[in-house]
Design a protein around this nucleic acid. Sequence first.
DNA 1: TTGCGTCGGTGCGTTACCGTACACAGCATT
DNA 2: AATGCTGTGTACGGTAACGCACCGACGCAA
Lengths: 241, 241
Amino acid sequence: MNDTLRPTNNLLATLLYEDRKLVLDCCEEVQLIFSDTLCEQGKPVKHAYFPLDSFASLAMSVPGHASIEIGLVGNEGMLGFQLILGVATSPLQAQVQGAGVALRIEAKQLEHVLQQSQTLQYGLNRYVYVFMCQLTQTAVCSRLHKIEARLARWLLITQDRAHSHQFHLTHEFLAYMLGVRRAGVSTAAGLLQQQKLIRYRRGDITILDRHGLEAVACSCYATVKKLYEETLNPNPEKTPQ
Amino acid sequence: MNDTLRPTNNLLATLLYEDRKLVLDCCEEVQLIFSDTLCEQGKPVKHAYFPLDSFASLAMSVPGHASIEIGLVGNEGMLGFQLILGVATSPLQAQVQGAGVALRIEAKQLEHVLQQSQTLQYGLNRYVYVFMCQLTQTAVCSRLHKIEARLARWLLITQDRAHSHQFHLTHEFLAYMLGVRRAGVSTAAGLLQQQKLIRYRRGDITILDRHGLEAVACSCYATVKKLYEETLNPNPEKTPQ
DNA sequence: TTGCGTCGGTGCGTTACCGTACACAGCATT
DNA sequence: AATGCTGTGTACGGTAACGCACCGACGCAA
């Protein structure tokens, strides 16, 4: 497969060649449609996804409350971390936020290839670890930081996943993900727009000043980004252990 | 080893007999001292612990802010989940909250026995999964629920780990764990005491009415408890898959 | 008995966000 | 041109928690 001529999945890229091949041979390419639900809270999961140019949001809902952000999964990771741990039930809800292509592997087949290679197991376990840290950081963030900072952070990670300075996100959706009121998002977004960091019109958001946005966002953005870079080294051939 | 005459670790109890033996043979018994720090954020980890009658708190601190609760680990689980994933750095801070005995295994040895048994790997992976769900639930909880409910929840999980209706916890410490002001805890604790659910005096807390406390606590307590019961089945011989 | 450190109760002004509600603008459909 | 839906701006009163600060009560030790 010629990876250089098409978008790649960075998690797969961290794997040893043999392990990557093992996984890729079981994968099929699928087109993800915007707003499709890939898995629901508490329901069984049939596939794991390695997004290429697509990405999906993860959220948890609590009875009697709004839901809350957990994170976004794009081509830096994998959707369905539970399968790496041998659990076939989804604890979260996943919804496609950016249409595009993803590689898909059946749960059974993933389980099978995991049993065939210790190093694959190890490589994907590292992802589970990073994902867990990200989860914790997001948790802390939503507890400590104010809406404006969290909104800025969310826009940044969306831009990272979308690989574009422009994307579609309504205040309504952002409110849902951040677990706040729609009105709260409007106010915060208004502030960011006043500072000429972003521009939006009926759901179409354009990032005007990424650096400015990073300054407004809390340190959580940088922390998680660094974690991914440090832990998921994209040159495993050089550091196979 | 005669497990029936002494406190047991429930996670170890979920393992197959052979796997349990594999782990136990590498374990040494250690006495954990109250307020000892078992691992610090970002520092390497040398051991994993399986508490018997001891328990420890996990917290994450963010520069410029108070720290925040992640959870408590007692005889229902294991301290050092990262080691199961092959990562030897601690993302969190762990401090002994209940003095007592724990079984301790060296990181290297755990890695070694994990390589020897797929079923052990699988059994501990399930714990990682449950722990992750708990993490998420705690995250959501600290975002959505008010201090009184979260305090009630914390007291309940402490009671579960301490296996006693009485334990030592100052408002100061509770504030630290819940990520709120000490004064906020005092007010909330005062309310619980007014309702005759608890009694406290200079750090000594007595649970008077567990059911009442469960009613005040948010649903998160019940959710996580159920998750542990369902996922970590203590009779693996009957359901070895 | 005095002193000191720990622990907890309380008050005050401030802030971030909530629930609710209404108004309006852009866009598509009839 | 009229209608209706979606997306956004804004306002109002209410509240949970904040930072800060001070004081009192208890318990240990000199």
